[in-house]
Amino acid sequence: MSFLRKLLLPFSIIYWLITALRNLLYNNGIFKSYAFPLPIIAIGNLSTGGTGKTPQTEYLIRLLADKYKIATLSRGYKRKSKGFVLAGSDSNADILGDEPYQFYSKFSTISVAVDADRKNGIEQLLSKTNPDVILLDDAYQHRRVKAGFYILLTAYGDIYADDYILPAGNLRESRSGAERAGAIIVTKCPPDLSIQAQNSIINKLKPQPGQKVYFTSIEYDSAVHNSTTSLMVSNIKTQEKILVAGIAKPQPFFNYLKGSNDTIKEYADHHDFTAAEIEELKTLAQSKIIVTTEKDYMRLEGKLPQDKLFYLPIKSRFLANADVFDATILEFVKTSF
């Protein structure tokens, strides 16, 4: 821990007391949690971001969408709209936020909604689309709604067992919050992570009886895409290009694509590109292509020349026991009706 982080430890104690009291009030029914008569799965983390919630939510959509009527509900981080919004043909990243708009753009058979008040959002979805299953994106700390199944994500190399409460660390609540999880997924692992290394992490996490720990890696697509064209990564690897990322922990994205002469443009997570930044990217890309993340593409599409802008899709891939995880989720959904 850095010296500055150590100085912040007294404030972490205050933060811990506040979050612990809040959880205690919910656990004892003093603050009310609302349950609903359908399967609800919450995907989230204990830390402040960068754990791969979006690819994990997409994994669940792919698992369930052929069998059930699915809806996703997010708060719509950094969107410019207010209240409940159900995605439609006039939606964009400004209205929904980049991640929900990504869900809407990729999966035509599901309902996508945003609402900071998850209880109201669920009630609106039930009245407007009547889904079979609701996936709550980034809702692990949203105690006002009681999900039937919680999936807790923690990133390899930055697991919650090694972290501290804000502001000395990056945890939104105490490590004991992990006890609510039905499954714990260690994300962004090296694809060849050994069983010995996996067991070492499990020992650190100390899962509760019945809690299963899974390990996933990020699987990058072999091509970059836009609405009309795809280019093989192997063909553009040595081509001089602009790489743009406004996500948490973008280094693996850069490492996968970059060549020796590439221009790297890194921004804060969920970055709202200014007019000046768009003009800068246009100037840089006069004789080059721009490759960005799928989330950033949702914000940049239509603002840069279509033939210059491409995105790299990613997926969550289980290192082992994907069949066990799938069966657990399917059984939960089946028995929750």
Rank of each mutant, 00 (worst) to 15 (best):
residue 231 L to C: 04
residue 10 P to H: 05
residue 68 Y to M: 05
residue 307 D to P: 01
residue 231 L to E: 08
residue 173 E to R: 09
residue 130 N to E: 15
residue 12 S to D: 05
residue 166 L to V: 09
residue 121 G to C: 03
residue 192 D to W: 00
residue 208 Q to S: 08
residue 125 L to E: 11
residue 139 A to W: 01
residue 150 Y to A: 05
residue 323 D to C: 03
residue 208 Q to G: 01
residue 240 E to Y: 00
residue 134 I to G: 05
residue 312 L to E: 08
residue 147 A to M: 05
residue 4 L to S: 11
residue 38 L to N: 11
residue 189 C to D: 11
residue 294 E to T: 06
residue 183 A to V: 10
residue 323 D to V: 09
residue 176 S to K: 15
residue 95 I to L: 12
residue 144 R to E: 15
residue 75 R to E: 03
residue 275 A to R: 09
residue 101 Y to T: 05
residue 180 R to A: 02
residue 299 R to G: 01
residue 81 S to R: 12
residue 195 I to Y: 04
residue 97 G to F: 03
residue 205 L to S: 02
residue 16 W to R: 14
residue 64 L to E: 12
residue 279 E to T: 11
residue 100 P to N: 09
residue 98 D to K: 08
residue 327 A to V: 05
residue 14 I to T: 14
residue 226 N to H: 02
residue 326 D to H: 11
residue 247 I to T: 09
residue 307 D to M: 10
residue 95 I to P: 00
residue 222 S to L: 07
residue 109 T to Y: 04
residue 3 F to L: 14
residue 326 D to W: 02
residue 91 S to K: 00
residue 99 E to K: 05
residue 211 Q to K: 04
residue 273 F to N: 14
residue 242 I to T: 07
residue 40 I to C: 01
residue 71 A to D: 12
residue 283 T to Q: 15
residue 130 N to C: 09
residue 159 I to W: 00
residue 54 T to N: 10
residue 120 N to S: 08
residue 191 P to A: 12
residue 46 L to M: 06
residue 225 H to F: 15
residue 321 N to L: 11
residue 250 P to H: 08
residue 314 I to S: 07
residue 40 I to Y: 03
residue 194 S to P: 06
residue 131 P to D: 10
residue 7 L to C: 13
residue 269 D to V: 10
residue 256 Y to T: 13
residue 45 N to Y: 01
residue 120 N to G: 06
residue 180 R to Q: 13
residue 186 V to I: 12
residue 75 R to G: 01
residue 144 R to T: 14
residue 108 S to I: 05
residue 87 A to R: 09
residue 203 N to W: 02
residue 275 A to T: 13
residue 167 P to E: 03
residue 253 F to L: 06
residue 106 K to E: 14
residue 320 A to N: 15
residue 251 Q to L: 11
residue 182 G to F: 02
residue 195 I to A: 14
residue 145 V to C: 07
residue 229 T to R: 04
residue 124 Q to N: 12
residue 310 F to A: 00
residue 259 G to L: 09
residue 186 V to Q: 01
residue 10 P to K: 02
residue 232 M to S: 13
residue 20 A to S: 15
residue 276 A to D: 15
residue 247 I to Q: 03
residue 36 F to V: 10
residue 139 A to S: 10
residue 328 T to Q: 12
residue 24 L to H: 13
residue 262 D to E: 10
residue 176 S to M: 08
residue 258 K to C: 12
residue 194 S to W: 05
residue 169 G to L: 07
residue 248 A to S: 14
residue 113 A to M: 02
residue 74 S to D: 04
residue 246 G to Q: 04
residue 239 Q to S: 09
residue 19 T to M: 13
residue 27 N to E: 14
residue 123 E to Q: 14
residue 48 T to S: 14
residue 263 T to P: 00
residue 53 K to R: 13
residue 173 E to M: 07
residue 137 D to C: 00
residue 106 K to P: 01
residue 198 Q to Y: 02
residue 125 L to C: 10
residue 14 I to Q: 09
residue 84 F to T: 08
residue 88 G to T: 04
residue 304 L to M: 08
residue 276 A to Y: 05
residue 47 S to Y: 02
residue 47 S to C: 09
residue 99 E to H: 02
residue 215 F to W: 01
residue 220 Y to T: 08
residue 324 V to N: 11
residue 94 D to V: 03
residue 42 A to M: 07
residue 162 D to N: 15
residue 313 P to F: 01
residue 286 Q to H: 06
residue 61 I to C: 03
residue 90 D to S: 09
residue 90 D to L: 05
residue 56 Q to M: 14
residue 11 F to S: 01
residue 109 T to C: 06
residue 335 T to P: 03
residue 101 Y to F: 15
residue 138 D to Q: 01
residue 52 G to N: 13
residue 93 A to Q: 14
residue 175 R to H: 04
